[in-house]
């Protein structure tokens, strides 16, 4: 199996405080990793390190062949954009292609069509000309998902994508994730059992350190051993594959 990303005794943090310490972690091509851990455990920090926005304070981050900023897609946990900025939903989705663009080039009709198609798949067809401020929180999150995947990344980083998903959209959201995982490796931070259990092939428990669990089944004992005292949010049916109790 191809390793597309590797961390060797990596540490990272803010100021003088290390949030992640001595992380050893390999990401294999086409894996679907559920990143779990308590609030403040360092999940978002881990994604920032992979994105290159946060420099490690120690250790090494080794990118696999052909993996760089331009082949990583990212859905932030909290949007930092100004939603009253004069920008259409379609423009926001297109910004996911900026990494492939040199200054001055414009988006082709084909690229605009692709953005439109993505919005349609995510149930936002009639909003493509709308302003961001006219959208609800869940709809916004879908726009940002479209922005993350429009460039066909090889590695997709999703920080709490399920937190706004309603029951009506849940099915198509899950189908979309499945389809995406056929084409790309996914790291998904989530507290949502439904979303996690439906897809993940492995777990990464992040709480200062990182424990990789190469199976989609994980027990409470293992979670405790990984120092991941987490509370997964349940909605709908709880599948038995996750959090098996013995």
């Amino acid at each position: 199996m191809t390793v597309i990303l590797e961390m060797r005794s990596l540490s990272a943090g803010y100021g003088t405080r290390n949030v992640l310490d001595n992380v050893n972690f390999k990401v294999f091509e086409n894996d679907f990793i559920g990143v779990i851990g308590p609030n403040g455990g360092g999940k978002t920090t881990l994604l920032k390190v992979i994105l290159g926005v946060l420099k490690p304070t120690g250790g090494e981050l080794i990118m696999g062949d052909g993996i760089d900023k331009s082949t990583i897609g990212y859905l932030p946990q909290i949007s930092t954009g100004d939603n009253s900025f004069p920008l259409s939903v379609l423009d926001v989705v297109l910004s996911g292609l900026m990494i492939h663009k040199s200054p001055g080039t414009r988006f082709s009709a084909d690229e605009k069509r692709r953005a439109g198609d993505l919005l349609e798949e995510l149930g936002l067809k009639e909003y493509s000309r709308s302003q961001l401020k006219e959208l609800s929180g869940g709809q916004l999150q879908r726009v940002f998902l479209a922005r993350a995947i429009i460039g066909n990344p090889r590695l997709l980083l999703l920080d709490e994508p399920g937190s706004f998903v309603d029951t009506a959209f849940e099915k198509s959201f899950h189908d979309k994730l499945k389809e995406l995982n056929g084409k790309m490796t996914i790291l998904m931070v989530s507290h949502d059992i439904g979303t996690i259990s439906a897809h993940v092939k492995s777990f990464a428990c992040v709480n200062g350190s990182l424990h990789y669990h190469p199976s989609s089944e994980i027990t409470n004992e293992q979670l405790r051993a990984y120092r991941c005292p987490i509370q997964l949010i349940t909605h709908g049916e709880v599948p038995h594959t996750v959090l098996k109790n013995h």
Binding site: Y74, S79, T80, G81, F85, K101
Partner: peptide, 15 residues
């Protein structure tokens, strides 16, 4: 586009 997207969301642009 570069200027517009930086103005809209600087943090994301940095990614």
């Amino acid at each position: 586009r570069t200027l517009m997207y930086i103005s809209y969301d600087e943090t994301y642009a940095r990614t």
